[in-house]
Nucleic acid binder design. Structure first.
Lengths: 217, 217
DNA sequence: TTTTTAATGTTACATGAATAACAACAAAAA
DNA sequence: TTTTTGTTGTTATTCATGTAACATTAAAAA
């Protein structure tokens, strides 16, 4: 959990610093970052320290420098190639979304079991699932998005394991545990909705607690 | 955070108990639940205790009883009506997904600014965004899914606030903070991918740490 | 040149969540 | 009937995360 949050914060720092930069700012102090995010300045400095990001005693941090270092840490300076398994509505939506590149992420191919979905041309080709092992090997893919129907989830997990995929963003409602071989990030929409509904029904009404339900900062 | 996790666990308990039930089981002990989820049995008992779920000293917990109580707590015994703002690819995908009902969630309408999207017939009607205030009031809606393009996110937030929506599941990459009036759950796909890529690149390779990146248990 | 200032970097502390340990006790066994 | 057993419910402990405090120091001011 600890590193998890730290990486999430790094992303928040990045987005905030990009906003500062677009306003023409060049340097920031730790509390300029902490305040808008609702965290303490010492946590910002600690995070920076842990990732080897340093500032100057009186002049704070260089935005450009911090951004460059964060992007390095997150790997956003390279291109991270990701594939999608299951080209249904969700899969298609992700394939056509073009906001990933700013974080160094590129959807390079889709895979589907249904031959009607196969598409050799276009920005992102859709290939038959049988081709996955070869493709992953040749293109050195390590992360996949699973967007298949829940009934195919377990089977797809096995396929991805065999193809040597190391990380899965799992959009199916089936929950998988990470193992030493493969890291699974379960992205469960139902759960988030149930959670939100619970909060709205139980806390907001009476005005008590009302704290953030948000995943991210 | 604390309640958050507790509700997420409640959902895990529910899903696991449903599996047990479908296998014909009638009663369980706390460690039958804890072990598959990778948590301690005392945490399961503590969660149950906090929500007023009790078992019997020697015979454990009645699956049926626990399920009923969990569904009550989560509100899954009623129907929770939810609307979607933005009927693009993601919005459409969610509208046509029919796995929500098992958690007591029903998508009852979509709203869009584009007149070409308006659709009066069909399972889930799509209405012009101007109708939202009236619809929310008449149908007593408190939760909305935001699936608009990022450029429209801020404006949509204002619209939802004016319509007295209390909870938002935000699919845009724009991060919103919860306030006393409105709870926002930021569901940011880029962030999750960056996180996953970071883990796979930095931990899995060397075999160290490898812990779960998953949101949920 | 010396002093003051104001920020970083780091250490100590507080808070909270999960685990471990245990007390209570109902059911089963003797 | 008494003893044993095994599970719940609860208390104590551990561990980790974020905050607060502070020591350090480079720059500015005097």
């Amino acid at each position: 959990m600890t590193i998890q949050n730290r990486i999430a914060r790094l992303l928040s720092y990045k987005h905030l610093l990009n906003r500062f930069k677009s306003l023409g700012l060049v340097r920031v102090f730790s509390d300029n970052i902490a305040d808008p995010l609702g965290i303490s300045a010492s946590l910002v400095r600690k995070d920076f320290g842990l990732f080897g990001i340093s500032g100057s005693q009186k002049g704070g941090y260089s935005i450009e420098d911090v951004l460059h270092k964060i992007n390095n840490i997150l790997g956003s300076n390279e291109v991270n190639r990701v594939i999608i398994i299951g080209v249904g509505r969700i899969g298609e939506a992700l394939m056509s979304y073009n906001g990933f590149h700013k974080d160094g992420i590129k959807i390079v191919a889709g895979f589907d079991i249904d031959v009607k979905k196969i598409k050799k041309t276009g920005d992102v080709p859709v290939k038959p699932i049988e081709d996955i092992n070869e493709y992953v090997k040749e293109n050195n893919i390590s992360v996949a998005i699973m967007a298949v129907p829940d009934i195919a989830a377990q089977q797809t997990l096995e396929i991805l394991k065999r193809a040597n995929i190391r990380g899965i963003l799992n959009f199916t409602p089936v929950k998988f545990k990470s193992t030493d071989d493969i890291t699974v990030n379960n992205f469960n929409i139902e759960n988030e909705l149930v959670n939100l509904i619970y909060f709205v029904n139980n806390f907001k009404k009476n005005g008590k607690e009302a704290k953030r339900v948000s995943n991210n900062i």
